[in-house]
Each structure stands twice: as structure tokens, then as C-alpha cells.
Nucleic acid binder design. Structure first.
Ligand code: SF4
Ligand code: SF4
Lengths: 134, 134
DNA sequence: TTATATACGACTAAACTAGTCGTATATTTA
DNA sequence: TAAATATACGACTAGTTTAGTCGTATATAA
């Protein structure tokens, strides 16, 4: 409950590792997977999504791999998480309005408020914070 | 991801409903289950846990049910959630120290900080806030 | 041309969450 | 004291989500 997914953790670990081990050269999925014992195919899919959403760029072929896009170091975690996992919300109705209790629900308003506070924690944290360590 | 469980939602809905429909008399699980179309046995188990952790008190037999313990209106949501679901933590290592990456992990420190911020959102919210609506 | 590495979708396994069932116990009222 | 009502509690099943695997295609350096 209230957990991040491994996908998100792998993304953050990778961004940090790439930033600190790149020197301008691309870092391969394999090298990250070795370093942290993350299943290679799984990690590759995560990195590919980060490329899709412009947080990394990729270089194919031998000596290829992934590089950080410096322009996205100010990206906040809501963007990263939602890119990987879809909308953040602590209950169904904060995402989709399809809860069957919606009409009778007596806690929606305070829950919405909590949800907003949770989101703002992730909004205030940027990739820069993760890459440096706080 | 980052979702509350139905158990927690049912607990909050029930506390709110009991508070506003009690008039000193106990409110039965059945009546709450009817009102919100929550499976009766499931709800009963949730309410029983709330009794176990002193947020409700129960009255057995006909005309029985559950009453709010006024002393616990200042209870915060960390206490309620952890009573029902165990320790709150956005990653494994914020709960149990048994992550296999613990030694090599390069994001533990910033993640710990985020985790603390998330917990404090729930710490700052009390049952009073939920019962009234914010 | 070969080896390396990303790209992408389909599939399986494992874990967690939600819901059900059966039985026991307490208490009110007739 | 019998019957009806309602909580107490543990075991079990079903459903959903998360994690991980596999197969195939494509790009590129040497
Ligand atoms: S409407 Fe109420 S019960 Fe349904 S998801 Fe929202 S908060 Fe939860
Ligand atoms: S040690 Fe790192 S990888 Fe493991 S749970 Fe903690 S933050 Fe996640």
C-alpha cells in the first residue's frame, strides 16, 4: 500500500547512475543491470519509456546506451511517475470518476485534499534532487 | 500505485457515518453496509480492527453496533492506516531493510526524505478532519 | 558481415487486495 | 430459556496489479 513500483525505482536509480558515470558517453542498459542486479529486459523497457518521454536519449549500436537530457534535470517526479505508471491518485475517484460510491461517498472532499498534498510532495521533488542525493 | 486500500476507505467512510448518525446509539455494520453497498462481512472485519485499535467501541447483541470513541477524534491517519495495513513506506527499505540493493542503492537517501514527507501528510490529518470534511 | 545494443509487444509468474464462508459468542426481548 | 440479532475471528477463493521473461525487429560501429 502506498508503494512506488519497482519500475519507478529502477528509473531513478538509472538516472542517477547515468548522470554520475557518463562523462558524455552513453551508458548501456547492460551496465546498469549488472551494477544493480536488475533484470536486463525489464530495465531496458523502463529506459525506453524514459526516452519516449524525453528524460533520456538513446544511442543504438555498439558503444550505445542512454544519456541524460540536461534540459530535464528540473523535471519533477509527478511527470516521471505519471509517464511510467499513469495518473497518480490515492483513490479511484482521484483518477477516473468511476467509483460506484461516488454519489453516497462522505469522504471524497477530505480525501481529495490529502491527494493534492501527496501529489505536491512529488511535484516539489525534481530529478536534480534524486541525482545529487538530498 | 500509491493507492489507499479499500479497507482504509471503508474505515474512514464508516467513522464519518457513525459520527453523523449515532446520537449516542451504536450503529450496526449492516446499516453501514446497506448505506454504502459495502460487502457486509468485509466491512465487519474492518470495524473489528478499529475496535481492536481503540478507535471504535462495540456493543454486541440486538441494537448493538459500533460507537466512536471521542478520545480518538484527534487520532492521525498514520495511526489508523498502520493499524489496518501495517507500516507505511513508499519503498521496501523504508519498512524492513531487506532490499537486496541496499548496499549499492544510490537513491535511498532522497527516497527516505520523500517518504518522510508523505508520512507527514497523513500525520497532519486527523479523524476530525475526515469526519467533518475539509 | 558480425557483434552489440536499443525498440517493442506478447506472455507468464508472483504478490497483493478484495471478497466470501463457516463457526463461535454475546445480549436483548418475548 | 428460546429465538433473533449482531459482533468476533480465522480460513479460503477470486480478482487485480506488479514484476519478470521471451521473441523478434532494427540500428550502427568495427
Ligand atoms: S468516491 Fe469515495 S469511496 Fe469512491 S474512490 Fe472516491 S473517496 Fe473512495
Ligand atoms: S534500498 Fe534502494 S532499491 Fe532498495 S528499497 Fe530502498 S530505495 Fe528501493
Amino acid at each position: 500500500m502506498l508503494k512506488l513500483t519497482k519500475t519507478v525505482e529502477y528509473a531513478l536509480i538509472s538516472m542517477n547512475y547515468i548522470e554520475n558515470n557518463s562523462n558524455g558517453k552513453p551508458v548501456s542498459a547492460k551496465s546498469i543491470s549488472d551494477q544493480f542486479s536488475i533484470p536486463e529486459e525489464l530495465l531496458a523497457k523502463v529506459l525506453q519509456k524514459l526516452v519516449k518521454y524525453k528524460m533520456l536519449e538513446s544511442v543504438r549500436g555498439p558503444y550505445g546506451g542512454y544519456k541524460i537530457k540536461t534540459s530535464t534535470k528540473n523535471t519533477n517526479l509527478v511527470y516521471l511517475i505519471e509517464s511510467l505508471e499513469g495518473p497518480i491518485g490515492i483513490v479511484d475517484c482521484s483518477i477516473s470518476n468511476d467509483c460506484s460510491l461516488l454519489d453516497s461517498c462522505n469522504i471524497k472532499s477530505p480525501i481529495d485534499s490529502i491527494n493534492q498534498n501527496i501529489k505536491s510532495v512529488f511535484e516539489k521533488t525534481t530529478l536534480k534532487d534524486i541525482i545529487k542525493g538530498i
